[in-house]
Write a protein that binds this DNA or RNA. Structure first.
Lengths: 144, 144
DNA sequence: CTTAAATAAGATAAGTTTGTCCGAAATAGA
DNA sequence: TCTATTTCGGACAAACTTATCTTATTTAAG
């Protein structure tokens, strides 16, 4: 459902968030070790997320990635997905038709809209802070 | 959300269904003209669907593709998606973790399950016959 | 100022999906 | 039987995603 880039992106952000809550900045190496993802590819994704303002990147020794606590409170999954995969998940016809809408719908338009809207709602309401807290308390897991 | 192959596959099957209702067998050329899809690629997808028993293929002059009315009554979208993309849409973790389940869930496991289950339910309950009928009556469209 | 540590960015490679081409096989009809 | 029409199947090509490698750029610390 998500691209690999998006999967790594979400996992990376959740790990950064978890450490940011504890006022710890984390390096690329720590991130890829903790979420078990390819180094260079993950670096590219983090660059994108940094440019989009989802995470902050700091160069130089003792540099790394972090999320300010203020940002973290408001951050939703949708911001991550949007920065990496764009809005193609929300938009676009289920059958790939350019001119599909409620007036001139493709055959699966109405059925599909439900699923897509549910996905959109889920991404826009799920809080990164809350997910990160759950990892911290051992309720959920980022590896394997 | 679906692969291109799956998009073409669904559109092709819906067109074949629409014509099968009128006891008309259709050739590859007719199909690709009506759903505006690449010829050779669509042929590959139809081969897969024929091998999976979703459509019947007849070789030779006046050959083509059709769906028996008996099959058509029971055919759901899930059979098409399954034949082309497999069950990867239903199975698998939203974050790509191999060992993610209700006992050891990834951070988005519960949120994601809702969306996936809604998609599954939609595919398994949506009837190809009904969708094809709607196209025939001009309520929905396969092109553009 | 120099060095070392860290991210940024561009080039390149590998893998997968999408798409094309061409000859083989089947078959209806003359 | 011969021919034309149609699907089948394998090989190939293009485009996109995923992944790697190498060289900058930034910057903290000695």
């Amino acid at each position: 459902m998500f691209s690999k880039a998006c999967e790594y992106g979400i996992r990376a952000v959740l790990f950064i968030a978890q450490e940011s809550i504890k006022d710890r900045r984390v390096s690329l190496k720590e991130i890829t070790r903790q979420i078990d993802s390819p180094d260079a590819f993950t670096a590219k994704i983090l660059q994108k997320l940094a440019r989009a303002g989802v995470v902050q990147s700091i160069k130089g020794p003792s540099g790394g990635f972090e999320i300010s606590k203020k940002d973290l409170q408001r951050l939703k999954l949708s911001s991550i997905v949007n920065a990496i995969d764009g809005d193609s998940i929300y938009k676009g016809c289920g059958l790939g038709l350019r001119a599909c809408n409620a007036n001139k719908p493709c055959p699966v338009h109405h059925e599909f809209a439900k699923v897509r809207d549910e996905l959109k709602r889920m991404l826009e309401t799920t809080s990164v802070f809350e997910l990160a807290t759950q990892i911290g308390s051992g309720l959920t897991f980022l590896k394997r």
